[in-house]
């Protein structure tokens, strides 16, 4: 059995949860077994996970789990794995999943591959799965040799697909230790898709010259419904907030579309964005290294090109 932990911070299932269940279902089909989903603490409308391929949705309603602590969460997941007899455990490679994957692997004596980006395959009865390594510069395939395996799934690596119907949520009783980490507050920006989940990203660099020039970039992102990102020097000089910094030392992302504006394309920047499906580069320097990594390029002054592109997108939106 494949067990997928479906994250629901503040009671809301994340996009990553739908991706993880879709992935778990594909792995289960391959292994000739079933895929079940597990929700912990607050969750609304968990039955919808059935439509992404979970044959059963289990819920541990223990109130300790309304606040995240890797110890109580990993204990609850491990207990569910044992109770249900699951052998493959799927997590999201998110801030939550990264706190859990290693713990869970130790608890279950399981081999772990974190940040997987491919559907597993089976070779000689063993599970194999690939992930990006060397900050996106290479891909590594691993074989997991333990009876139980843990895989955490990179965000945006699979598209959530509905393949079934909603199911009734079954409650599951497991013992959970008390939390030792207290979450005092949790602040997320309202109405913005967080960078790791974003499918469309508009990113700008030092070519913007000054933080007061960001209006044209914000307008473009607004038109597209895209999330903003930036290069490291831009975040380091506080032109933009740190959570927008992408690259080797920032956030690694893999959106469908990455539009890079006034960014030279240094190797450390590319390391965080080169897994994007499509890259558009706008730069006045035809020799900018970013063009080598781009699918589409515009050689021109960003202060003219970006407003023009914004108008073109607006036209497109109006007609479609």
């Amino acid at each position: 059995m494949v067990l997928v932990f479906a994250e629901s911070p503040n009671g809301h299932l994340k996009k990553a949860a739908f991706e993880a269940v879709t992935y778990g279902k594909k792995a289960a089909d391959l292994l000739g077994t079933s895929c079940v989903a597990l929700c912990l603490g607050d969750v609304e409308n968990a039955g919808v996970l059935g439509s992404f391929g979970a044959s059963n949705v289990y819920h541990v309603a223990n109130s300790t789990l309304n606040s995240f602590d890797s110890q109580s969460y990993s204990a609850a997941i491990a207990a569910a794995v044992e109770k249900l007899g699951a052998t493959l455990v799927i997590l999201s490679h998110s801030s939550t999943g990264k706190s859990l994957a290693g713990r869970l692997a130790v608890k279950l004596n399981a081999g772990l591959v974190s940040g997987a980006s491919s559907i597993p395959s089976v070779e000689g009865g063993k599970i194999r799965v690939s992930k990006g390594v060397y900050s996106g510069k290479a891909i590594a395939e691993y074989e997991i040799n333990s009876p139980v395996q843990v895989i955490s799934l990179m965000g945006n690596a699979v598209k959530p697909i509905k393949s079934g119907n909603e199911v009734a949520v079954e409650s599951l009783e497991v013992t959970v230790p008390n939390n030792r980490v207290t979450v005092k507050s949790s602040k997320t920006q309202e109405g913005i898709v967080p960078l790791p989940e974003a499918e469309l990203v508009v990113s700008a660099g030092r070519g913007m010259k000054d933080p007061s020039n960001w209006g044209i970039v914000e307008e473009l992102a607004d038109t597209l419904g895209a999330t903003l990102a930036c290069s490291r020097p831009v975040a380091d000089s506080d032109w933009r907030p740190h959570h927008e910094h992408v690259g080797q030392t920032g956030i690694a992302i893999r959106p469908n579309l990455y539009i890079a504006i006034g960014i030279s394309g240094a190797i450390q920047h590319l390391a965080g964005v080169n897994n994007s499906k499509v890259i558009v580069v706008i730069n006045k320097d035809p020799e900018a290294p970013f063009f080598k990594a781009a699918d589409y390029g515009v050689v021109g002054d960003l202060f003219e090109v970006v407003p023009r592109l914004n108008e073109a997108f607006k036209q497109f939106k109006a007609n479609n």
Binding site: A110, G111, L112, V113, R128, V133, G136, K137, A138, I139, A140, E141, Y142, E143, I144, N145, S146, N274, N275, V280, V281, F291, K292, A293, A294, D295, Y296, G297, V298, V299, G300, D301, E304, V305, R308, L309, E311, A312, F313, Q315, F316
Partner: peptide, 30 residues
């Protein structure tokens, strides 16, 4: 005994090459 074992490393497929679009013609890019 480590139970996760490397099978092999590969390099990502090279990009097909950049398609340049006229900066005056953003409708074409869209």
């Amino acid at each position: 005994e480590e139970s996760t074992k490397l099978v092999k490393f590969t390099l990502p497929p090279a990009k097909a090459g950049v398609k340049l679009v006229d900066p005056e013609n953003m409708d074409e890019l869209v």
